Computed example of a mutant assay.
Amino acid sequence: MAKREVDIVVISDVHLGTYGCHAKELLKYLKSIKPKMLILNGDIIDIWQFSKSYWPETHMKVVRRILKFVTEGIPVYYLTGNHDEMLRKFADFNMGSFQLLNKVVLNIDGEKAWIFHGDVFDVTMQHSKWLAKLGAVGYDTLILINSFTNWLLTAIGRPKMSFSQKIKARFKEAVKFINQFEQTAADLAVEKGYQYVICGHIHHAEIRKMEATEKTGSVLYLNSGDWVESLTALEYNNKNWTIFKYEPADFNGDADEEDKTDAEDLDARLDVRILLERFKMEQD
């Protein structure tokens, strides 16, 4: 099956290592594309909630697929987020076509794109990290309950539902937070003279032209959403940005089928579970 060529792909908030992560679906998506550049915009691996007892093979396969892009010479930028903040001490590390950074400014067809995760705008992250971590555990639990509920709904022929999206829609403070997040990102991007600002963090995919608060200019605000509920990514092709949304009907075959690569050798050299346990111990 021919792979779909895409100039740039931006993915964020995958949360590998948690029960809510849709690694199998992400793997199918990654196998279906041939990007010229891949940007992993934070919270790809959830070091906050990492446990040695939960690291499914599909999660490892996502890591392998990303490393496969690196070995093929495709530029891969890993930008740190709050759930993988332990990696920030290793920022500016690069290996071949792989770069680990906190943020990056890229020239895309003559226009500057400011790309970062976005947790810097989250007041809870700045002043009550313990509360943010508690909220992350609660969110993961909600996703687990939601998954079981959706299994039951599917079994009786009813449409699936999203608990967290319903909660966000019903509470004005959640909607207000998203709006403030987007406006803050837009204001700073305009002030810095960028044409694009690309974030993750809030699990809400968006592409929208936004005016600065002081009406001194505008910027294209983009958010890649997540791979916990939305299952979305940003794609740039032919000088145009779009939101990709995973739909099961568009993908055939079994993502668990292992590629004909030397996976065992890779695992021997990169025991992700041991590395993540060390990161978590240092963080605690």
Rank of each mutant, 00 (worst) to 15 (best):
G118E: 04
P56E: 09
D84A: 07
F93L: 05
F251Q: 02
A155E: 13
H127N: 13
F69Q: 02
V9Q: 01
W48Y: 08
I145M: 13
T141Y: 15
T216Y: 02
E282S: 05
G138S: 10
E182T: 13
V76I: 09
I66A: 04
A23Q: 05
G225F: 01
A205D: 02
D284G: 09
Q180I: 15
G20M: 10
F69D: 02
V175C: 12
L275C: 06
M37Y: 04
P35C: 07
A205N: 05
G193D: 01
Y139I: 03
W114V: 05
A91N: 10
H201D: 13
V14M: 03
S162Q: 14
E182G: 11
M95E: 09
V105R: 03
N179Y: 10
F177S: 12
R88W: 03
T184M: 08
P35M: 11
L101P: 03
N107H: 06
T184C: 07
N240G: 00
E235S: 03
E206H: 08
A263E: 10
A263R: 07
V6E: 02
G217P: 03
N102Y: 06
Q99P: 04
Y196R: 09
E25R: 07
Y221H: 02
E57L: 15
A186D: 06
N238D: 07
P159Q: 05
K176L: 14
K260W: 04
L144H: 14
D259H: 07
T216P: 00
A233C: 12
L142I: 15
D187Q: 06
L26I: 06
I11N: 05
Y139P: 04
K215L: 09
S147Q: 12
L131G: 05
N223L: 01
A233M: 14
S51R: 11
F116W: 10
V104F: 01
K31E: 00
K160N: 06
D256H: 13
I108H: 08
